[in-house]
Write a protein that binds this DNA or RNA. Structure first.
Lengths: 240, 240
DNA sequence: GTCGATATACTTGTATACAAGTATAATAGT
DNA sequence: ACTATTATACTTGTATACAAGTATATCGAC
């Protein structure tokens, strides 16, 4: 149909994955960004012709998005549910739940290797900012938190992470792209916040961890605000 | 191939669902029960011919099982991971995490309707026991916990539940079938435990809730024990 | 006998074809 | 003009076909 050629989800992020997974990432990001508005009814055939693939990978993508509650698979077509402000709060409820649980485990194990890894990621983030690469920054940001969660070797906590990660990833990506243009100072605040995370893990001081989580949550509220602005702009852009 | 006709997962439970989802339930239960041993390599073609369907629904099923960490999708074939004792502990970590979170929300809302629903389910469970229907009992047991979780209207907590539910369901189903034969008394203990849940919700007394969760956890450890026995028996049965 | 290359029989990923069902629109009857 | 019915153009779910890649096994050279 419209044969949209520009992908807003970084293609290299989905390099190894199958077409279905890549399409899920692209459609997910478009929905979260507001490019695809909620209420829209997605048909497998239309998506297939739009992305110039067959229905097989499209089906795979829709199944993934449905499992994330981003769309709802119905008898006729998949209706776009999108994210409400409520949803975003809820995602962070879960993230807080997970990270709190993870930290309780972390204080019981040796974290020297973890701290090394996190320090490396943090430096990568610094470089990403230096070169104004919002995508790379987002990637490392997500990786940072994933690394922490992975460190406790808990497959079911990891499973929860894997189910919430994609949405988080898109949220962060869109937010960071936005901020790179308009709120450049935010990045230094985010870096500081991550330093606190590392410090909390190094010292195993719960008070510091709580501080880190709270700061992160505050950053997030900013992110959410940005996102709505972003959606607003996109909508206006389309209607222009 | 072997064209196994007997399904160990109650067919009526998957009545409305697509073939792929039903197959996922069946294969999941077989893996958890030990009928399909860990390490086995499942091929889409073999499964398709065994269940006498095409590869499409099989692919769907395998995707689902992979998202639950029960199998691992690799280049050549899907290798059965199964559940370790560790995994089962971890599932209950998550369930404890969720139910604790849910309870913190529940104490803030009106629960009269919820208590009514739970009481109904509890009576259903009593009837199920009376007629020695382990499957129905399991169904209501899972529904009981799902009803509690659903009551707080938190879509992302619900998402986590939806991802852990299938495994829980199979675990409970297999365990209950086992107990019906050998440890009939356990059922009254489980019923008592559920009464405590209801009481905790009605009175909004955290201490009682903790008691309920602990009792449930103790019941679970029994379940796990049963399961290993069950696997043992099945293995011996096959080798006989 | 041992090592290496090729051939074959698998595997998955994607595309296409077909069947069953549903909503919409157009048409016929009143 | 309005209602009921039929036709059609969609939808998804499943089956099949094809392409690309991988492990294994067989066969040949040394």
């Amino acid at each position: 149909m419209s044969k949209t050629k520009e992908f807003i989800y970084p293609p290299k992020w989905g390099a190894g994955a199958s077409t279905g997974v890549r399409l899920a990432c692209e459609v997910r990001t478009r929905i979260i960004s507001g490019m695809i508005t909620k209420g829209t009814i997605l048909s497998e055939n239309k998506l297939a012709s739009e992305f110039e693939v067959s229905r097989s990978p499209i089906r795979e993508a829709l199944k993934i998005l449905a499992s994330e509650n981003i769309i709802r698979l119905e008898r006729m077509g998949a209706v776009v549910v999108g994210l409400t402000e409520q949803d975003i709060k809820e995602i962070y409820d879960v993230r807080l739940l997970i990270e709190t649980f993870v930290y309780e485990r972390i204080v019981k194990i040796d974290t020297s290797e973890l701290v090394r890894e996190l320090s490396k990621i943090l430096e990568m983030m610094e470089v990403a900012i230096k070169y104004k690469d919002a995508d790379e920054f987002s990637y490392q940001d997500v990786l940072f938190h994933e690394t922490i969660i992975r460190s406790i070797n808990h497959s079911y906590i990891m499973l929860i992470w894997n189910n919430t990660k994609p949405v988080m990833e898109s949220l962060i990506l869109l937010s960071m792209r936005m901020r790179l243009e308009e709120k450049y100072d935010d990045f230094t605040r985010i870096l500081k916040n991550h330093e606190v995370y590392i410090k909390a893990i190094k010292t195993k001081d719960r008070a510091i961890m709580i501080q880190a989580l709270h700061q992160n949550f505050d950053n997030v509220q900013g992110e959410v605000g940005d996102l709505w602005m972003s959606q607003q702009m996109l909508t206006e852009g389309r209607e222009r």
